[in-house]
Amino acid sequence: MFEDFSFFPEAASTVAGRVDAIYLFLVVVTIFFVGLISAALLIFSVRYRRGRGHAPEQVHGSIALEILWSAIPLLIVLFVFGWSAKVFFDVRTVPTEGMEVFVTGKQWMWKLQHPTGHREINSLHVPKGQAVILTMTSEDVIHDFYVPAFRVKQDVVPGMYSQLWFEATKTGTYHLFCAEYCGTKHSQMIGEIVVLEPAAYEAWLAGNPAGRNPVEAGKVLFENLRCATCHAAGSGQRGPDLAGRFGEQVRMRDGQTVIFDENYARQSILEPKSHIVAGFEELMPTYEGQVSEDEILQLIAYIKSLSTGDEEPK
């Protein structure tokens, strides 16, 4: 059992080193203060033990000392706060370009889909040196996508999309854990992230059968569900045209503006009444129960492709 033993996890993403730096700094701070307090306790305990028979000296306190030992920790924690907030901001700010992967968590497995249409369960192959952006949701309870080697973690919440991104810097196989307790087989909701050289990744893609890619699948769904009857340009405009709208601000009938993002698209499919775009009527029926989480993701992929123009990646 000592084979793989280590005290420090592998660091295999662009942010891992930055997180480790803060961690190590905090370890040093901790050792310093624990050392300081322990040394003081020890020295005082020995020097002023009762056996030595001296009278205790009554000291009430010292304002100067109080200010000193409030100010020093304050400065340290403010420094740590600023530093880690900066790193956190970068960890959480999803880059605009990257390989988009859809993730659905359910009790007790991970379902992942590549932009090429390749599907995987409990494992994800990614190329080294490229940003990978995960758009994640859950079919049942809250899960959490955690890759220790990348130092990233994000809850996967039913009813909404959360995003996570990483850029792997080292090839290898790394643990994928579910970190939010999700029921009986929580500890078996694990998998692996396989980081490959870009060429090897291409080879892996080529060597595995691809399903329809999400955009294509979404397009088929869009047609089968007859979304285009209302949402295509020039069709009498019963519903807003979706082309070129993704990522933009949309004005609602009640005067609010909403960002047209994944969560907005999802809500509009499942609860069309919740947001009515200015200039339109409440006509759209709900698709709740008619489309699965996977299919909603595909629809969104298609809707997004209408705005980004890269409709057919092929």
Binding site: Y23, L26, S84, A85, P148, R151, A179
Partner: peptide
């Protein structure tokens, strides 16, 4: 003292992302 100082690890956002729920 150890308990309190390790609390700072958890209050720092970037480190907490990694150690949260571990």
């Amino acid at each position: 003292t150890i308990g309190g100082l390790t609390g700072i690890f958890l209050a720092s956002l970037a480190v907490d992302v990694h150690v949260h729920d571990t």
